[in-house]
Amino acid sequence: MLRSAWWKILSFALLMYTCTMGFLVKIPVLDDRLQQSIRNLYFHVPMWFGMMVLFTVSAIYSIKYLSSGKTIHDNYATEYARTGIVFGVLGLITGSIWANYQWGKPWSGDPKQNGAAIALLIYFAYFILRNSVNEENKSARLGAVYNIFAYAMLFPTIWIMPRLTESLHPGGEGSEGNPALNPKDLDSHMELVMWAAILGWTLLGVWITTLRIRLILYKEKIFSHA
């Protein structure tokens, strides 16, 4: 499935759709809270969806690596985590730009912001751990163990903790509810574009990762022939 081209074309088409319709689609007239800045929904929110998907795939490959011991699974896990980090950083940046207009400053210590920053620190630590061990096998094994542990710790960090406190994020009023999105702010057109954006960006993330894995495999081939 990953070798076929259709999903890459789909990703391209969806992102073209996102980047045009994201700016053109009519947005519902809300009170003063969110005006045109709600269009960040198509660029900021999908980053987190993408990050979660990529980290999940990474954790699955870590489990696979522990049960099979094949290096290729470890390569998959590392590269998916790497792309996940890129998505997370992009999510923070797009969020900060949005927050600068919406909340008055790029970083307001919102629980969701803090949670995302901690999640990224957890994954940066993953790469530091991997690089601090020289033996390749050992680094892969320790990395896989930590990756699974980090993934389990990710849930309280970004799913449970931010929900316990009020958030500045749309939908974060009161201590109940999802403090990142307010479904009441969207109409059906916006939702359509949102899902297209989420799917498109996530597929792009997978695409980038598969390219990186191919690069690694080619490098290994060169080394083994040298």
Binding site: I118, I122, A125, I128, L129, S132, A150, P156
Partner: peptide, 20 residues
């Protein structure tokens, strides 16, 4: 296992422990 005790403990531990 990674043989770099103190520094690694802090690097791995502090982000992981924050939610708790």
């Amino acid at each position: 296992k990674a043989q770099q005790q103190a520094a690694l403990m802090a690097i791995m531990g502090f982000p992981v422990i924050v939610p708790q």
